[in-house]
């Protein structure tokens, strides 16, 4: 912040709108897309969530009826509970596991490239494939249970998919297997950016490596952690295909998720209003998390 900065700023401001017109014209399509598709369609959805729309959108307003029904539906309540549990556990575990894997790979191991490929590989599979693979692995007749029983341990039982209490754990297993690799690779790249001198300095001072990681390196990695968190969080909110492929919401409604509720309400029950109400709730919950975070992260201070 120098004196010249302050002096130049007011003079530049009025010209901002018209400066560099070609770039602005080039950006216009994207701006329109954002306004019409993202904001416009979201508003349209929110407005129609207050209507009685069935198969086709209607404008017969019914106030908060759709929301009342939504929050009185056991399947929706179960979905919200499930995504809360899944979300928190998945977020914590993928960050912790991802960081541990990244830190281990950063120890100048041999054949690091091969390890990196192996760890990132599951991320290249779609959730549908991941779901099917794990459905087979966890199937009691063909999967782990079947194999262990085949070795002679007849009473071995491992059937998490057909037990309402353990099905979320099974889903986490599949989700973490797929998603942790990406987190690890992002954090590994960030670890490489940490100045070697910090390590040398801490070694000279006799600080143990784990303390250096927690008190020095992790704070430096903050931007990378933020990127990873945003990526994981968006994956959690839109979680749909993994459920469909792995359990289809079952057993019963023990692994239902909000996105699946939205799809079923709109297309199977032919009740658009109900689906819009549910998707509006998803939007609201995302905004509730995102807005405070955005203010905290970007508000107030200007960087550079």
């Amino acid at each position: 912040m120098s004196v010249t900065d302050h002096a130049r700023a007011p003079a530049r401001r009025p010209r901002r709108l018209i400066s560099n017109p070609m770039a602005k014209i080039a950006a216009l399509p994207m701006i329109m897309t954002a306004l019409v598709i993202f904001i416009g369609c979201s508003l349209w959805t929110v407005v129609h969530s207050f209507t009685k729309s069935k198969l086709l959108p209607s404008t017969q307003f019914v106030g908060f009826d759709q929301y009342e029904r939504l929050w009185g539906t056991r399947r929706w309540l179960a979905s919200v509970e499930n995504i809360a549990i899944y979300g928190v556990v998945a977020l914590v575990f993928s960050l912790v596991l991802g960081f541990v894997i990244a830190a281990l790979m950063d120890q100048k191991v041999r054949a690091e490239g091969a390890f990196r490929t192996i760890i990132l590989f599951p991320y290249s599979l779609s959730f549908i494939v991941t779901g099917l693979v794990w459905q087979w692995i966890l199937n009691p007749d063909f999967g782990v249970q079947g194999i262990v029983r085949g070795w002679g341990w007849e009473s071995f039982t491992f059937d998490p998919l057909h037990n309402p209490d353990t099905v979320l754990a099974a889903m986490l297993m599949a989700g973490l297997w797929q998603g942790t690799g990406l987190v690890a690779v992002i954090l590994l790249a960030a670890l490489r950016g940490v100045d070697e001198d910090i390590w040398k300095a801490s070694r000279v001072d006799g600080v143990p490596a784990w303390k250096t990681y927690i008190f020095v390196v992790i704070p430096i990695l903050r931007p990378a952690f933020m990127t990873a968190t945003v990526l994981i969080a968006t994956g959690i909110v839109k979680l749909y295909d993994l459920v469909v492929a792995l359990t289809n919401g079952g057993p019963g409604i023990a692994s239902e998720m909000p996105a699946k509720y939205v799809y079923d309400a709109m297309f199977n029950k032919q009740n658009l209003g109900q689906g819009f109400a549910a998707s509006t709730m998803m939007l609201v919950s995302v905004l509730l998390i995102l807005i405070p975070w955005a203010i905290f992260e970007f508000g107030g201070k200007k960087r550079g």
Binding site: K54, G252, D264, K269, Q270
Partner: peptide
């Protein structure tokens, strides 16, 4: 009954048969 009600009965039965409701 409407597809909406049909779907809700299906959800209910899925819940009933998949739990100890």
């Amino acid at each position: 009954i409407t597809p909406d009600a049909v779907g809700q009965i299906q959800d209910l039965m899925a819940e009933f048969f998949g739990s100890d409701m």
